[in-house]
Structure formats: structure tokens, C-alpha cells
């Protein structure tokens, strides 16, 4: 395994677009070449080493054997691990928006919190967040008809609004609560929410959403039956009937009115 360690030299007042921080990009490059990769800080083009201290083995290695360790506050750094297909990124701290965009394989582990759009349009691989995640986890970007199509996202804390919007495949697990409209326009993915959720599954066409806490359910869902899963009783709903949807929604506790 080749390990590359990246630490911010300073705080970032404007966002850094760092889609180059990815095992696929780093793998064929020497450490010097990695240091001179170009990134944007706001409207300024800079090199990676202008912003970050970069250390590690110099010799190139296959991307599957490349591990990138980010240490420090990356909450102002966007697009980490974009389109990665293999390898690993481990973050000891927070990450900014759009981490794991379009990721097809490999693994991202975030020990702190993630910003919005985590795993946007992800196709495969795994993302784990030990803290909270922002809005639009696993969603499609503006206008897209498909967000995440495959892979796994697990958030130990809570997620923001529009979790898994336009989900077309894959699995998202949130151990804590989800905000407004989780699984909106779901088209075939699976979402499990450990805590509470507000108006899950609006406009969903297919797929499954399970809320183990309390959920406020839209009136356009039809209550079918009560089922037991892992020792917990759930009300099962069909919806969203406002658009002829055939999605399944399970809620352990339903908030009326």
C-alpha cells in the first residue's frame, strides 16, 4: 500500500475545488507531480502544495493500492474523491461539499462531518461518515433524473434534507435522523433511517424507504398492513400515489395530521 498524507497549510476562506484528490489521479504520479497538481481556490489557480502539506512514498503505485489520508479541517474543500474507481480516502476531520461525486468504486471514510451532496450520482463503492452529513446525500444534481445508481453510503449521525433525491439504486443508511423529504422521487434505491424523518418518499416511483423512528407520512400514501422486521413493528405504505408510484415505505411510528 502506498500512503499519501495531506494536511491543510491554513484555513480556507473561499472553497477549494479539489477533484484531483483521488486515488485514480494520484496513482501514476510521483509525490512531486502530486504536489504540482492544479486546483482552484475560488477564482485562483494554485498547486496542491500551495494549499496542502503533502507527504508519502514517492513511487507510483496502482490505484487499488493507493490510500490517501487527509488530516485536518477539509470542510472548505470540495469534490474530494470525485469519480474515483478504487483505492481509499480516509479523512480525520470534516469534508466539504460534493465528496465522492460520481464515485464508481473504492472507499471513503470520513471521521468528522460531510457537507452537502455527499456521494452525488455515485455508481459504486462505499462511503462511511462517523459524524453528520449535509443535504442532498446521494442525490442527482440539479435537473438530473438519476442520483446515486449503486454503492453504499452509511452515516452514523444525522442527514440533512432531500436525502437520496432521485435515487436510482444503491443503499443509504442513516443511523440518526433525516430531514425533510428523504427519498424524494426515489426510483429504485433503498434508504434506511434509524431515527425520525419528515415526509419521506414524496413522488417516489419505486424503491424502499424504512423509517425506524417517527415519520410524518404524506396523505398520498396508502396504508397496506403491519409487518414485523427485526423485531420492530412497521406500518407498510404504498406510494407516492400522486404520481402512480409503486414504492414501499415502512414507518415504525406514524405522526398523524
Amino acid at each position: 500500500m502506498r500512503q499519501i498524507v495531506i494536511k491543510p497549510r491554513r484555513g480556507f476562506r473561499v472553497p477549494v475545488e479539489a477533484e484531483r484528490i483521488s486515488p485514480d489521479v494520484f496513482a501514476p504520479l510521483s509525490i512531486e507531480e502530486i504536489r504540482s497538481l492544479q486546483v482552484w481556490e475560488g477564482n485562483r489557480k494554485v498547486t496542491l502544495s500551495d494549499l496542502f502539506e503533502i507527504s508519502g512514498e514517492s513511487e507510483p503505485a496502482p490505484p487499488e493500492e493507493t490510500v490517501i489520508s487527509l488530516s485536518g479541517d477539509f470542510s472548505g474543500v470540495k469534490r474530494i474523491g470525485e469519480n474515483m474507481t478504487c483505492g481509499k480516502i480516509a479523512v480525520a476531520g470534516d469534508v466539504g461539499m460534493h465528496a465522492g461525486n460520481g464515485m464508481a468504486g473504492g472507499e471513503i471514510l470520513i471521521e468528522g462531518n460531510a457537507g452537502g451532496w455527499l456521494g452525488r450520482e455515485m455508481r459504486g463503492g462505499k462511503i462511511a461518515v462517523l459524524g453528520d452529513a449535509g443535504d442532498y446525500v446521494g442525490a442527482g444534481y440539479r435537473g438530473e433524473s438519476c442520483g446515486m445508481r449503486g454503492g453504499e453510503i452509511r452515516i452514523e449521525g444525522s442527514a440533512g434534507d432531500y436525502l437520496g433525491e432521485h435515487l436510482c439504486g444503491g443503499t443509504i443508511t442513516v443511523v440518526g435522523d433525516a430531514g425533510d423529504f428523504p427519498g424524494i422521487a426515489n426510483r429504485g434505491g433503498t434508504i434506511v433511517i434509524g431515527g425520525d424523518a419528515h415526509l419521506p418518499g414524496a413522488e417516489m416511483a419505486s424503491g424502499t424507504i424504512t423509517v425506524r423512528g417517527r415519520a410524518r407520512v404524506l396523505p398520498s400514501f396508502q396504508r397496506l398492513e403491519t409487518v414485523e422486521i427485526d423485531g420492530l413493528r412497521f406500518d407498510k405504505f404504498l406510494g407516492d400515489l400522486v404520481d402512480g408510484g409503486k414504492g414501499e415505505l415502512y414507518a415504525a411510528s406514524v405522526e398523524e395530521g
Binding site: G140, Y141, R142, G143, E144, S145
Partner: peptide, 8 residues
């Protein structure tokens, strides 16, 4: 306007 995904 309808298709920001196309603009990308």
C-alpha cells in the same frame, strides 16, 4: 432552464 443537467 428546464435542463441544468444538459448544461453540465
Amino acid at each position: 432552464i428546464m435542463r441544468p443537467e444538459d448544461g453540465r
